[in-house]
Write a protein that binds this DNA or RNA. Sequence first.
RNA 1: CGCGGGGUAGAGCAGUGGCAGCUCGUCAGGCUCAUAACCUGAAGGUCGUUGGUUCGAAUCCAACCCCCGCAACCA
Length: 534
Amino acid sequence: MVSGSDSHGTPILFKAEKLGISPEELAKKSHKEISQTFKKLSLIYENYSTTTTKNHEEIVHNVFLVLKERGYLYTQKSKQYFDEKVGRFLPDRYVRGICPECGATNARGDECPECGKFLKPEDLIDPYSTLSDTKPVFKETEHFYLDLKKLEPQLKKWIDKSSDNWRKWVREFSKGWIREGLEPREVTRDMNFGISVPVEGWEGKVLYVWIEAVIGYLSASIEWAQKIGKPQEWEEFWKDPKCKHFYFIAGGNTSFHTIIWPAELLAYSEKYTDDSLWNKYKLPGESKREPLTLPYDVPSNKMLLFKGKKMSKGDGTSLDADSLLEKYSEDLIRFFFVRYAPENHDREFEWKDFLDCNNNELVANLGNFINRTLTFVQSKFGGTVPEGEIEKEVQEQIETSFKEIGKHIERCEFVKASEALLKFGDFSNKYFNDKAPWVSYKENIKECSNTIYNSIQLVNALRTLIKPFIPNASNKLRDMLNIKNEYDPNEELTTKGVVSQLENSWYLEEIPSLTKLGDIKILFEKIDREEERP
RNA sequence: CGCGGGGUAGAGCAGUGGCAGCUCGUCAGGCUCAUAACCUGAAGGUCGUUGGUUCGAAUCCAACCCCCGCAACCA
């Protein structure tokens, strides 16, 4: 699993200008911050890279040139507004003027905020640049365009064939794009921040971030292979048709992963059927002459709304992981955003849900069962797992849950997976209640032992079942159950950057009788509702 | 205008042709091992509107209404 910070966005550029530092510096700083946040959330990657590396630039150039040679890139001249004082071409929204429709004086080059009419910058009356307040001039510029139209038939064929397992909205949204017909897209910009254009005479322009950032998935994989000292290893992931690629992204980026990136991959893969290109444009460590793998699934989420609106940093309606981490546990944050993820439609974020998730689901359901079982062993059996035999009902529940939750995770149905997890908690609490070991303890110690033995097995199953969601809690539980020398893929990933035995981690071994437990601690802390946020 | 998603109990959501479900909240009861946690039961819905197809529709079809997103030189 690889990812990285997309560093060449316009927001970085403008924010850097505001702070008076170079965009490169700011990109570096935010990448560091994001990496730390991920670490705090136990989001572990084989490689979490950035798009400012030399490696990335080299690979982007390679891809660009292959696309160019295959005829998917062409140049075209156009006239755009240019701010002579600042010496820069102006994005549409940096040109303002009077709306030709309604006469509003604050119309932007892309849209009039008063009447909602979509505009072109040249429609504006008395245009001015928001960068210098001077009147911009029309100036000719030249750009490269990606000929998406030419790729449309292949793309359509691919989507029709491979989107059946996608989330409905992702599939329909992507098919809608194709149905409407794809237009060529500008891939270069008049800017000095970004990946250079690898063509003579194009100094001073850079590649547009949208075409270049997605290539980061490939360059991060290649970088990873080099880091672990096996420069060819990335091909195992990119050229084996059995290897399925999942792209976990925010909804707004869907088209870049279901249309643009596949288009780039399809076009690039023509390299493998062209002798001269194959010899000329090898990727680092490349030896297999086979096409690159296209996405298997793009499970993107819809929007999490805050007071009915899209979250936005500008107006204080954003929730970011860092401020949540100051107050709440990693486990709660991870579990909440899976449990209440807007997988199929927008969803309103409510603090009440956040607290309910903690107090009712993590604490009262899962945590309580774990705690009542472990403290029972502690107080009645001196911290040693009593003797017993696994009951059929318990065994079946455990097997069913492993199967069901595993199935949901494979299908990227994470909300359903979390629901199944809570059902397992319900079963366990009910089992404990029905068996009433606090009664049998006085009347029939053998039956009591058996109940507790079975409860311990349920706790242990829970330990593994929660691991994908809340690995931190799972590890704490492992220590409480005093399990030693167990293979932990996350640990191997953190220390070596690889996972060697993935297929063995979704299984269960019984905790034998007479096992001595470790220290019992509260796994999830209850949150006082009075401290609710505004 | 166009494209896509959604409109189901007080709240949040599942449910794509066969007696309307889940979680929380509310009310009543049980238990006391457990973080006042756990278990049982009850109340609560004309499934956005109108029409159609069908023995049967939340589910299929048509039209309409409302909310959201996309539609950008924002990635």
